[in-house]
Design a protein around this nucleic acid. Sequence first.
DNA 1: GCACTTGTGAAAAGCCTGTGAACGCAGGCG
DNA 2: CGCCTGCGTTCACAGGCTTTTCACAAGTGC
Lengths: 97, 97
Amino acid sequence: MGRLEIRPEEHAALVDGRPLSLTVRELQLLISLSEHPQRIMTREELFAQVWGGQPRDDDRSVDVYVSRLRAKLGEALPGRRLIHTHNGIGYRFSPDG
Amino acid sequence: MGRLEIRPEEHAALVDGRPLSLTVRELQLLISLSEHPQRIMTREELFAQVWGGQPRDDDRSVDVYVSRLRAKLGEALPGRRLIHTHNGIGYRFSPDG
DNA sequence: GCACTTGTGAAAAGCCTGTGAACGCAGGCG
DNA sequence: CGCCTGCGTTCACAGGCTTTTCACAAGTGC
């Protein structure tokens, strides 16, 4: 999976061997996304996996955490965009930028 | 169906396993077309399936979205023409270029 | 108490959509 | 030929809707 490595059982995400300092939520979200590479996941799916249950109609939690995750990934891997937005649907994780 | 795969339930259209970044409308249109391969579909039929209801007399929405769809398909599958125009009638989807 | 995380509201940025208009292309006709 | 006409294709754009980002109050654990 390139320079990014995710170890759910160790609660860790590594870039070139260095752990990213992600919060629990951020890591859960990254794990959920990366478990289905190239698949478009809806907010509902992601919310269910990370938070459990169903999001409120106007819940922006997923978006906010995607944003935070991107910020940290972007710092560690400049110039790569691993999480893609699919307007009106959700997000997609693509290992190869 | 060759290199193009359409998965309505996943909101995705894949070329060689990679999702195209289609908008919701574009995907709906592609789904409608591809559900009846080799069949000529009228603008009215397509409009009804994608937008619902009947198009205005001078509505060009279907044409515009066919054009947008062709542009994106053409980028992902250069040299193949999947959507054929039938003058005065409508469009036809042909899986094998 | 302190440092950090979490979820929420709201402003800013960005994308999608439908529309009108311009453009291109072919056929018909003087 | 040259011009007109009928269609389909593409461009440009404004409005609306979605996503992104920021700031903040409340919560948690050390």
